[in-house]
Amino acid sequence: MFDMLRKIWQVGTVTEKQPFEPAPKKYRGKIELTAQKNTNWEECIAACPTGALCMNVNKIRLFYGNCIQCGNCVKICNTDALTQTTDCYQAVNAKKDLFISVDKDEEK
């Protein structure tokens, strides 16, 4: 009984009052998609394990709902078109907000 009370006293309160620290540097977060010329889109699309990154006629489309943030596309990409951030906040209300499209041949 007393060892239990002593442990509770020693540990104290661990609840984080003001949330929550930001994600650590290595965290694999949201993928950002921009249009860049001479990007090897076919290889990036083939590297995606879930099919979240796909090509529709002349547009490249990324579906965040299916993205498991593995980072494969970022590794294979030969330009800055695909980058990975440490953002973990991707919740949306409408499904259409989970899609992002860029024109294949547009240069930023």
Binding site: F20, Y89, Q90, A91
Partner: peptide
């Protein structure tokens, strides 16, 4: 569905945002 929270798995902070 009202809200979609992507991630595999999403962090607890992301669940609170949802």
């Amino acid at each position: 569905v009202y809200v979609y929270v992507p991630g595999c798995p999403p962090r607890p902070q992301a669940l609170i945002q949802g």
